[in-house]
Structures are given as C-alpha cells and as structure tokens.
Write a protein that binds this DNA or RNA. Sequence first.
DNA 1: GTGAAAGCGCTAACAA
DNA 2: TTGTTAGCGCTTTCAC
Lengths: 330, 330
Amino acid sequence: MRVTKAKLSDVARIAGVSPMTVSRVLNGRGGASPETSERIRQIADELRYQPNALARGLKSDKSGIVGVVVPDIANPFFPEIIRGIENVAMQHGYNLLLCNVVESADREINLMRTLESQRVDGVVWCSARLPEKDLLKALESFKAAVLVNRTVPPQIAGSIMIDYRAGAADALRHLWDLGRRRIGIIAGPAASRGAMERLEGLRMVFAELGAEPVATVHCAPDVNGGMAASRELLGANSQVDGLICYNDLNAVGTLQTCEALGIRVPEDISIIGFDGIPLAEFVRPKLSTLHVDKYGIGQLGMRMLLERIEGKFVQHSIVIRPQLIARNST
Amino acid sequence: MRVTKAKLSDVARIAGVSPMTVSRVLNGRGGASPETSERIRQIADELRYQPNALARGLKSDKSGIVGVVVPDIANPFFPEIIRGIENVAMQHGYNLLLCNVVESADREINLMRTLESQRVDGVVWCSARLPEKDLLKALESFKAAVLVNRTVPPQIAGSIMIDYRAGAADALRHLWDLGRRRIGIIAGPAASRGAMERLEGLRMVFAELGAEPVATVHCAPDVNGGMAASRELLGANSQVDGLICYNDLNAVGTLQTCEALGIRVPEDISIIGFDGIPLAEFVRPKLSTLHVDKYGIGQLGMRMLLERIEGKFVQHSIVIRPQLIARNST
DNA sequence: GTGAAAGCGCTAACAA
DNA sequence: TTGTTAGCGCTTTCAC
C-alpha cells in the first residue's frame, strides 16, 4: 500500500503552478494554456492523484453519496431495486451508501442519523416502517428524499408507489374467476403499509362480490413466515381453496406447506403471490403472481431523487401497477 | 426540509462556550464540568446537531465508510455476504458504500478510483475479476483491503477463500458414489478464479478415478447461463448421467432444461449445484449442493478488515470449506 | 476546566 | 492565463 496520497498541492508544486490552476484544469474548467493543462494532467496521472471527496464535499456541501435504505437485502425484491438505483446513480456520478434495516423500526431512526452525519445528498428509502410523525421528522434532515412504498406530502419527499390495492384486487378476481370461493389471506407483516393496502383492495372486491375471506393471518414477509401462516390456515379440515399471499416468498412457503400436507396445487387450492421475483418461476408449480417492475422502480426513484437534488420537482409521485402473471399455481 | 444544519459552533455559541469544549463533551472526552456538559448535550439535542462526517473525516483522515464490491447483487449469493459485512460494520460504526460491478472488469477499475476518491477506510472486494497485475495496483490505493474469493500477498490484502477445489472434489465423489460415470461440467464464467479452482479439484479426482468428464461448458453464472449450457450438454442423444454445476443458479437453469427435455432428475441424471442459496431448497427436486456459509464469510471478512484498518494483521487468510448437502437432485 | 490558533484538501471569489 | 485569500466544520496542540 502506498504510504502517502498525492494531493492537489503536490501536483501543483511539481507542475510549478498554483493549486488553483490544477483544480481548474482537472475539473475541465479551462483556465490554463493547452501546454500547461497537458503537463498538469500528466503529472496528476503519474502521481495517481485522486481528489479527496471529503475535502471537496466539505467545501461544496455535496458528498456525492446517496443513501439507500432497504428493509432486508436478502429479500430478492430489493436487490433488483438497488440495481436500478445504482444504474442511474452511477451515470450521474453518485455512489450508494447502502443500509439494511433488518426489519426493525429502531434501526431506521439510527440509520437516519448516520445518513445525516454522512451528509448524503439524498435518500431513497424503501418500505419505511416508521410511524408517520417520526418519518416526517426523519425526512426533514435530508436535502432530498424519495420513498418507495410510502407517501408523504410532496414537499417532504417524492414517492414511487406500487398500486397494491389494484394488484390485490386483480389477484382476488383471478381466483374468483377460477371458481374459488373459500379464500384465505396470508397478509404479511401487520405493521406494513403495503400489507394494509393489499387488504383494502381485497375488502373492496370482496364487497363487490358479496363475499368474505375465510381467514386472514399476518406473518413475516419471508418463506418461513409463509410456511407458518399457511400451516395455521390449512390445518385440520380447512376448506380453503384459494390463498392470496402478501409476497412471493410467503407463497413459496405456502407451497412447501401444501406439499407437506399433501394438498395439491392448483387442483385442491389456488395460490397466488406478489412481486414477481425470479424464484417464482423456478418453483413447481410455477407461481402465479402480480409482477412488479423492480429495476424500473429503482431507476425511476433515482431519477426522481436527482431532480429533487437539483431543486426541480417535476414529478412528485409515480404509481406502478402490478401485472397479473397467471402461471401454474392457480 | 430544514434549511440550515446546526454545526458545532452553533451549539457552542448558544451554550456560551468554545467549540472545542462542545467537541470534547460530545465525543465523551470529559473536558467540562458536569453541568456544562449536560447543558451542551441538551442544546445539541434541541438543535438536532449531527456532526459533519465530511469535516471530521477530512481532519482525521478516516471516512467511517467501507467499500463493498460485488459482481452482481442480484445473485442471491451476495446479499447474504453483504448482510454479514454490514452486521459487523455497524457494530463498529462503519457504513457501507456498495458497488455492483455487473460482471465487468472495466467497471472494476473505475470503481477503485471512486472508492479511492471517497477515501474509504477499507474495502471488501468479492470475486474480483481483474488480472493479477491490475488488481495489485488497484489495491495499493487502500488503507486496508480484504478479498473474498481471491488471494494476494498478505501485506496487500487479507483474504477469505472458499475451498472450491475441495468442494468440487466432494461433488464429483458424491456423483461417482451414486454410480454416475458419464459426468458433464457446467463450469461457469471462464474468467472466474473460482471456476478454475473448481475445475482443478475435479481434474484431481477424475485422475484418481482414472476417468474423464464427458464435456465441459462455460457460461454466465446465472439461471439463463445454466439453461443455455445444459441445453448444449444434454442435446440429442447425450449419455450424460451426472452434471456438476458452477453454482446453484446454473443448476436451477439445468433443472429447467431437464424438465423441458423430459429428462428425469435424479433418475436419468444427477445434478449438483454450489453455494447453497435458499432457492436451492425450493425447487423440485430439491437441489443437492455444496453449501457455503455466506453470512459467516461477510462477518469474517469485515472483522479481518477491521483488524487491518487498526494495523493489526492477526490473520491473513481464512479458508471456508463448503459442505455437501445431498438433497433430491442426486 | 476551558479556549485560541492552526490546518486537514479543496474551491469560489476576486486580483493581477 | 494564472495566483492569492479565505473558509467549509471539525479536532489536535498547546496555552491559560
């Protein structure tokens, strides 16, 4: 490891010019004769000079870093979003400070402090679980913010929403069209915004249909949560013939339960997930789901954040409509 | 959004003391009477003072940020590692600057410059694809570095290695014990270190056995890559009865091919993957694999990095041995 | 127990 | 075209 790092003044000294000139040249703002410029560039190269982002950030009050907060990076839903964010961020010279909340609200508050300390230029915050009041207070500290899966007044943050109501409604209608009448709900985390919205969408359609769900069970948004919830729902002589799951992970857990219990899918029961993660295609039967364009969400979110960082507020809110993909589990 | 951010001097002014005193108190280095300290803390709280990490970093030459580089965050192998890294990093007050290489060597070089500019305190670099010479040069710029899946001399970087040779050897012996004699290899990316090592392990065992692989095909390390490679291998009247895959994603792709081609697994052919990602348990048949403790790798890697950041070099290299998990695909 | 001065590396504003 | 001055927010050093 090299011991000392070249700084602007080193380049300047060797080139026999002032630091200011080096700064101008290296930042492409002219300010020197072609020959001087060339010499400066060459010396910078030889010295492997890399500007100190800390100093630059301190001076300019821009860190070049964007905070990304996700509840659980092990949930395949989020890496796709992150890729979308990174794709756009990179093109614009931003880096990603990634924070994994591990599904805990306490951590979220701490994280906010950290990100504030790091003086991130903005934040993309996915599936925030904080109560409204805390959330608003936390968001205050950022120059710009975009929420995924949550809304606040537009002057506080932009938002990318997934239309969970519509998605859940589609899921229910799909099962109903298939002749399923005894429908259960694996509803995900009780504290989740998205879970509530799905439930609202379902209630609406159930009302239209003059029907009611057989049962509703909350659970963690992962495979184990789905297994536990489905065991509860499909236990001794349940007559459930259709199951709407909070997400694909829950649905995969349900598939495991059905297999263990000898319940045939889709003959005895139809199962539908949500999100459209790759895994859904690889299980058997292939999982029907409401597909969400995660990469696109990431890109949109980051673009929206860029606008906000630059002080433009072209678009405050974008709603993504999930798309029903009927595969073999329904 | 609040317009101005409180700084140290604001707290000092209001508290009627010097910035220095505030600094000492807030950093828990005594330096003030209990009453003064209490007052300072309270004012800092009211002002929602958060220290500027840029300024602190500039002064102390420590950014509090650790760079994490992965080839593809959408590959479920890496989020687990990241979680492990974050878990330890967080406990020690470090944040993660995440960089997704998207499997491209050019990007790796650029990334290094960026991370250098950000003055990260260290780097955990997973599955670097850079040629040795470039890699060494790139690593020079960091105060501390740990590689996952690659080694360099210990003074350059620590390393967490997965014993791919042993793992691949186990895989082959497993298939052989099952009576498989016409074994093909889906070898992953030709440029990957890990791929080469697996191949070496296989060659060794093949030699012991006095046998040879029927065919070897390279491919991208994802499901599609596995599908393409397996179609090539299992095409018209292949007699392959065992397939060793670079990773679980490749193996899942192979499973798809077998299904499409009407090849029964494990009756007609045994298939084994590598990594032990969750997905492997959810496909049918359940995938046999060589399980790697990804979360543990992340933790170990970050701990090793911490030691290096602190100038200790207790351990230079750790080797993780993959564990054979025989499920239903073999 | 408390504070003043100086400087980390960079750049905006102004001078020459 | 080039350089000087000053300051971003913090902390180390030394003095009181």
